[in-house]
Design a protein around this nucleic acid. Structure first.
Lengths: 225, 225, 225, 225
DNA sequence: CATGAATGAGACTTCATTCAT
DNA sequence: TATGAATGAAGTCTCATTCAT
């Protein structure tokens, strides 16, 4: 009835958008309630279609779930690798940049919730485990390991075990992202609300100082913000 | 007329053991499959009783879940506070001790899995959110904040924001626990298996060095191992 | 765009008919077995649908029961009030008319059985008690009281207490209805079968003569039959 | 610990009383909640014994129910017949006496509730139908028919059909008794509370005047109270 | 006899999925 | 394609009944 892209009638345009609308609705609901507690009809409603239509695009709730996971976890890492390859400055600055980017692009968006759902459901969907390992864990590990390795190679960082250091770097961020879609989304009394920016800043402050070979310099991890 | 655990007749002895048997079975299954996907009858079976018996001890699946949470997470913090109060050595050693203790007593036991379940289900159980905040998040935060504060007060640690530092200290451990009951429990190919002990060691190495005012000394966080 | 009962496609026509079909089936079964002993699936079967379909129309067995009550007992009284308002003849004739009408419209139909069910179950359904009082007891009382009052005012009836007289008038009819859906529906040997018409006739004969100020005249309460 | 009959210890004495205590408890509960909604354990509790004990005395809830019915409905009529046989006064006085007696002995006691339960459940317990007919309906009918017949024979009453007249006489009383264990036991707003004594009085006033051949004399049906 | 822990059939209800329209 | 009425498998929970103590 209004804006129509390339003279398609509204319904036509929406038809093409359906799969994405369904995936978006499903993501929201799976994150909010979990897989089992999300009803297929609710997903359809939120996407503005009927129950039957959902099954026109996805043969089962399970497949819908997998599609949501695949869509939201695919290729978020590639860009990061590019950043490592092109980086010119200090390795600390590189890590700061990587982590801020991840936070802006994933941690601080609704998509972060997908990590919560995966965490909760992988064991019920064995196929997803391999997918998650291949698409997320391994690339993310490689990315951070390469950045740490760069620092070590250039003599900026101490010679620490790579994988464990990478984990130690990422864990607080991922944990924060999980938390925000879990207890952080509940109205609880008297609980210290986490401030993501401050946490990220403190974490980097702590951990980079721990990494660096040259003791303490004044850092400003939030210079650009 | 009271405690005679040994000479009780069978029926009676079982009755006293039932709640624990049920809680154990429920913990296993909730961690493995999540709350919603765990069937009450399955819990009963694993505990070696019938469906009806479960309901003799817990009035609903939800109450069973809460009981599991309370049993596994209630009051593991108290001891930590004691440790802080009685500590005599350096604050770094205190943190090392706290974190190793947590790992031994929680992280490395089946109870760690309950954190995964809570993370996943808390939004469907508003009461649990408050319980979790009151019983776990706040006390744990207080515990670690007090240890960090001790270090700052004694001039051992830099003057960093308390809550954020506490988060940064705990997050990798909890993340590790979550991981081990999630993807870590699935048979995936080509994925770096995390070695908890090494991770913990590296994390402490990094973060304590980041915390301390006196730059880098050789630490041995794993003295006892 | 609206009422086209004839040319609707099958699905749609059924959908409109379902509630009534379910209510009819439910009435039969509730009257036959009582509320608690009637299984939801049985109702569905008798209505020719599956268990799930019942719950598409009524959210619980209890709500189905209430719907049955409301459908069968709601607003059968209004017409009676009209009859009182418009009556021109003697008050005795008015009472005769009221009672015959009730018998034809309620007592002699399956709906009469609902009184049995209410009688039996009302203490388990506190909300129903109020509904039954508001919708049935009070209006029926008012109706009969107004008819008796008319007779007294016009000097046709003795000056008897209104409510008690109304009760005395209605009780045998309702009792008869209860009986017919209870023992009266069982195959018993040697039990006097009640003939509703004769009972009604005799009851009116007795009670009207008792009511009237002018002693005994020959009455014909069954003129039309 | 106190009054002991014939030097039996308390437990012994109670043992003998058990069946009666169970029947009493069962009667109360069946009347209050109906057969299906009454739990066996509740009956046992109210009788002060354990669930298992109930089954020592009655092999099933169904048999318990039948026993309750049989116990409470057996031979309440015999005395009435005696009264008819020995009566010397007017037949109206006889009817007044019969009905007051029934009201005092049955209608106004908890036992009246059994009629409600029977009414509700006979169709689910076919064996009870015959029992009820034999023990209650037929004897009661005979009793009242004989009293009415006496009046007709002695020229006191009009020559009305016996069975129907008997029904018309009893119905309001039984209805009242049923009502008091049903809606009458619920806390409803704005509903005319029935006063049994006034109702009984009015009913008799109406119906005896309707019965009698000699028109209206001043009656005092409550002389003795 | 008495107990009450245990059982498991069975009832209510939900919801993923199908399919006639 | 899109719909939403219909289905029925499956899950939670209850409670009559049993039986070891």
């Amino acid at each position: 009835m209004e804006a129509r892209a390339e003279d398609h009638p509204t319904r036509q345009r929406r038809k093409e958008a359906r799969p994405q609308e369904l995936l978006d609705a499903a993501l929201e609901l799976f994150v909010e309630k979990g897989f089992a507690a999300t009803r297929a009809e609710e997903v359809a409603q939120r996407a503005g279609v009927s129950k039957g239509t959902l099954y026109l695009y996805y043969p089962s709730k399970e497949e819908l779930f997998k599609a949501v996971v695949r869509q939201n976890l695919g290729s978020l890492i590639a860009e990061g690798k590019e950043a490592v390859a092109q980086s010119q400055g200090s390795s600390s600055d590189l890590l700061v940049k990587l982590m801020h980017t991840w936070w802006e692009r994933v941690g601080n968006t609704p998509a972060a919730g997908i990590h919560k759902v995966i965490l909760a459901e992988v064991r019920n969907f064995p196929e997803l485990a391999q997918f998650y390992a291949d698409e997320i864990i391994v690339p993310a590990d490689e990315l951070f390991c390469s950045a740490v390795q760069r620092g070590i190679t250039r003599g900026e960082f101490r010679d620490l075990p790579l994988h464990e250091t990478a984990q130690a770097l990422m864990a607080p961020m991922i944990f924060l992202a999980l938390h925000q879609h879990s207890v952080g989304a509940c109205p609880v009394q008297g609980c210290v609300a986490l401030d993501p920016e401050r946490m990220l800043h403190t974490h980097l402050d702590l951990v980079l100082r721990g990494l660096e070979t040259r003791p303490a310099h004044t850092r400003d991890t939030e210079a650009k913000e």
